[in-house]
Computed example of a mutant assay.
Amino acid sequence: IFLDEIGEVDPAAQVKLLRVLQDRSYEALGSSVPRTVDVRVVSATNRDLVERVAAGAFREDLLYRLNLIAIRLPALRERRVDIPLLARHFLDLSAHAYRRPPIALADRAVAWLQDQPWPGNIRQLKQTIERAVLVVDGDRLDVGDLVALSGLEEREARGGTALPSPGTMTLDEMEKAMIVKCLRHYEGNVTRVAEALGLSRAALYRRFEKYGLESH
């Protein structure tokens, strides 16, 4: 069983998990009958659990139970050589998920991606590529598209906006929603909206016509 973000587990759940690991038994919700379990546990965290123990936020006995073999996965910024492969993989996945034709990744875009600090690691890289697929105009993702998108991401991060999960909206619905959001943010300034979305003014006006939008 894989337990992600184990460092965020609350104290009550830590007690229950420790019991399962020690006694290899648990009680199902609504039942008082113990059930045995025989599993191997793999857990992951981006927290320093030793520090969490010292702060009283994580049980020391649970840490000892979990920490039989520790594998440190370096941050993405420490293994930039992996970024081109990961970026192209996420690009293919996102293009397929949003029913887009294959999109090429320009060499300059790869270099830009490798220069970023990626505090959110692989998840942040994946989201960046996914968002680029939503707004890029054409079959090639270049550095200009990513630079424009990075500015939009920073502004939306401050506003707490996140992408919908795949399958909850069509590509057209997501594209229209993003254009409307940018129009509101830039108060109808078409030039700034086009720059933020990585589109030419002509491409943006075509989308206005497609979705029945007005720039004012």
Rank of each mutant, 00 (worst) to 15 (best):
D137E: 14
Y26F: 15
D107F: 05
L49P: 05
G151W: 08
Y64T: 10
I69Q: 08
L105W: 04
M169E: 14
V37Y: 07
S150G: 02
V9P: 06
L73E: 09
W118I: 02
A162C: 08
M174D: 08
P34I: 06
V42M: 09
E173C: 09
T168Y: 08
C182M: 12
I129V: 15
R72E: 12
F58S: 06
S165H: 11
R72M: 04
L171P: 05
A97D: 11
R108N: 15
V39A: 14
L21S: 09
R80Q: 13
V9F: 11
D48G: 04
A106R: 04
L29T: 12
D145H: 13
T170Y: 09
L183Y: 00
E214N: 10
V41P: 01
M169I: 10
F2N: 10
L149D: 06
Y205E: 11
T128W: 01
V20M: 13
L62K: 07
A196G: 03
G159N: 11
D92L: 07
V147Y: 02
G120V: 08
T36P: 00
D38N: 15
E51F: 05
A202D: 10
D82L: 05
A203I: 04
A109P: 00
L66W: 03
I83P: 01
W112N: 07
I69N: 07
E209R: 15
M169N: 07
A95N: 02
D137S: 11
V180P: 05
A54P: 02
L93Y: 05
K126N: 12
R40W: 04
R158E: 13
E187F: 05
E173H: 12
L204A: 09
K181T: 13
R201N: 14
G167C: 04
S200K: 00
R88T: 08
